[in-house]
Design a protein around this nucleic acid. Structure first.
Lengths: 359, 359
DNA sequence: TTGTAGGCGTTATCAT
DNA sequence: ATGATAACGCCTACAA
């Protein structure tokens, strides 16, 4: 019986159950089963169930069921200082790249009894800091981070503090933080091989930001592939975007065109940058793929319905999220074993934005 | 000093702060400020700060700052049975309709000190039930629901149980649950007026599911608009989709074409259904807008880059989310005042998928 | 104005 | 195998 209840011989916890519509607690279950709360706790927890007699366990579980008992995760968290919760840090959920990753994460977390807190940083460092602070204050057990930059002191210091985390899509330089990414280099190699096979020799690259690993890795892979195929290796054919978005892609493409260096194809750092190219083509009356072929990266939804449908590198976003979640759960639950990283395979999705050069 | 600490005269809580890297608690702050934990609590809470002397308040706040004190939301929740948390129930985050709504919600929640739990139901009733159960077991203070069906017993019973909630995009029949939606009827009226103005007289409608309010409202608005403009009012020109997606839109369009009833324009229930039309056009060599004009609904991202760019009804998704969050916070914090509902204005976005009929 | 005490619901550590 | 007890960190009557 509860300390704050009048000393009535209340079997079955009826006093409490009928007086208010509050959810039943462990004590209610214990009373209903005629055992102590501690025993009920043991009976209900699979990990400690073997400590009680089979009969008691059955009675308690039955009582819990009939009362509709749901353990209070907040009380449990307070006691165990585990929240069954992880934080997911993305730049912007409205970027179609991220929802599939988040779904992959949630699918894995869900079956493990975990939930995800999602926060958006809008690529703002200060906002990133405050959002991560807020996640930590909510006692998340780990972090999945999609906003990593090559030089990222914040992540470094979190890592030093022993915060469990896994990076997705990107990695940090010089830091042993586990990550899951697509095979960026492999994807670029596929793209260049495709264009070379079509007969292009002067291929440009609109690189993603050089402060992100994917930007740098893809740019480096691009130069390697160009050399491997013995194509025009002209630094003037490479432009960099400050952000992975349409506007910066358009700016970069304008810069490239204004530079006057001729080219017949462009490998965009990602699909959004490729969309920026489309915008510039429309502005300047350039036709794709007749004048310029374009390849994107990521295979966002609906690219098949663009004018023209965009050839791109397909990335298993859901798998990236799922693998990251699995790795994080391993970190959380497992011991100190060395955490590896993962490079997931990509594929070339050939559509209408690439063709033989007309010149 | 803590009960479990040895009786050392530990000023400034040094014993605890140095012995482990645990975050400081209220007691640590209290010790550092030389007051009792209760006083520290009052000083730190703006609502009770006036109960302590200005000097004490200053000392406590300074101590909190230097120690980097962050209140433990879990302990606070357990005590107050408030979680500063709301649940957001969407069908599928990878549907581009929802991320902007979620962002709108989060922007409002964030400044109020709340956070959102996002769950996906995949339009599965059982999954919806279990996900909402899990939200409730985590003691969310309210729910924002984007999955409402016209007949939705689950929502009814939650409402009866006094669960605070606000619906977005959809409403439930016969239930006084507050909702925030776009002006569906107004949008359809704009679409039909646009097509009628172009000279179309036989206009079809690919309606959304009839178990959703937006499906029904848009279909009804369509019939009204047709009559208002004295156009062909032929039931054979209306087809229904089982879900708001591309595949079902394509099926409905095929059915419409196979039926043989002539038409020169179609108002799709939403953008995804319109995309389904595009698929069928490609299959059958129909050209848009020359043979058939199409109007969508929602103005998802990147529609301007489709072939042809899709004319559609623009909906302020972020505002819908933001308003819903505001309403929910009102419900949670405010008294029992009558909660209204909101219809947000829409606009017609004219692009390349609509033109004069060629016949 | 400040301190004391008790409890939110659960689990871990005792003891029985 | 089970019960008693205390504690997780915080808040809030109530007492002083």
């Amino acid at each position: 019986m509860r300390p704050d209840q009048p000393p009535v011989p209340s079997q079955e916890g009826t006093v409490r159950r009928t007086s208010a519509q509050q959810p039943p607690t462990l004590r209610d279950v214990a009373e209903a089963a005629g055992v102590h709360a501690a025993t009920a706790s043991r009976a209900l927890n699979p990990k400690t169930r073997r400590l009680v007699s089979a009969d008691t366990a059955r009675r308690v579980m039955k009582a819990a069921k009939t009362l509709g008992y749901q353990p209070n995760p907040i009380a449990r968290s307070l006691k165990t200082s585990k929240s069954s919760t992880v934080g997911v840090v993305v730049p912007d959920l409205t970027n179609p790249l991220f929802p599939p990753i988040v779904r992959g994460i949630e699918n894995v977390l869900e079956v493990a009894g975990y939930s995800a807190w999602i926060v958006n940083t809008d690529n703002d460092r200060e906002r990133e800091r405050t959002r991560i602070d807020s996640l930590r204050s909510r006692h998340v057990e780990g972090l999945i981070i999609a906003t990593a930059r090559l030089d990222h002191p914040l992540l470094g210091s979190l890592h030093e503090q022993g915060v469990k985390m896994v990076l997705v899509n990107r990695r940090v330089e010089d830091l042993q933080i586990p990550f899951v990414t697509a095979d960026d280099a492999g994807g670029i190699a596929l793209a260049v091989r495709h264009l070379a096979g079509l007969g292009h020799t002067r291929i440009a690259h609109l690189a993603g930001p050089r402060n992100t690993s994917s930007g740098v890795v893809r740019a480096r892979a691009f130069r390697h592939a160009i050399r491997d195929h013995e194509l025009e290796d002209d630094p003037a054919l490479i432009a960099e975007c400050a952000y992975w978005n349409e506007a910066d892609g358009a700016d970069a493409m304008r810069g490239l065109l204004d530079r006057g260096t001729p080219f017949t194809a462009v490998v965009a750092g990602n699909d959004l940058i490729a969309l920026g190219c489309y915008d510039v083509f429309a502005e300047r009356g350039i036709s794709c793929p007749e004048d310029i072929s374009v390849v994107g990266f990521n295979d966002m939804p609906f690219l098949d319905k663009l004018r023209p449908p965009l050839t791109t590198v397909g990335v298993p976003h859901g798998d990236i999220g799922a693998e990251a979640a699995r790795m994080l759960l391993d970190c959380i639950e497992g011991p100190e074993r060395q955490s590896h990283s993962l490079l997931l395979p990509v594929s070339l999705v050939i559509r209408g934005s690439t063709a033989r050069p007309s010149a």
